[in-house]
């Protein structure tokens, strides 16, 4: 099965606090076609995000699709509360890099329609 690089499919990949206790990731795809390819790949699960960040699956609070924005969103428990001892990113704005390496398996019959 062929894979596509997430950086070729998405125009925005970012992280940010959702309050001081949670970290939320947004992947906004370039268009509906890429969003649908990503959705149908089935890889965007709690397990994917747990693996990318080396955390327990239970620490991934949700993975949600937001079709109106062609976006997939995931939220995790912050390993350290914003501004507490050991925190290194108070705004949570630089925690997205592992997402840039995602490769999305695509069924070729679904591409190029």
């Amino acid at each position: 099965m062929k894979t596509l690089k997430i950086t070729d499919m998405a125009s925005v990949i970012r992280s940010k606090n959702s309050g001081p206790y949670e970290l939320t990731f947004d992947i906004i795809f370039k268009d509906r076609a890429n969003f649908q390819l990503a959705g149908s790949s089935g890889i965007f699960t709690n397990k994917l995000f747990a693996g990318l960040y080396g955390i327990k699956t239970e620490s991934v609070l949700n993975v949600v699709e937001f079709e109106q924005a062609n976006a997939i969103k995931a939220t995790i428990v912050r390993p350290v509360v914003s501004g507490s001892p050991g925190d290194s990113d108070v705004y949570g704005a630089q925690q997205h890099a592992p997402l840039l390496d995602i490769e999305v398996p695509v069924n070729m019959t679904a591409v190029g329609k």
Partner: peptide
């Protein structure tokens, strides 16, 4: 709409 929110 999704910015800084856990559930859009």
């Amino acid at each position: 709409t999704l910015y800084e929110k856990a559930d859009p």
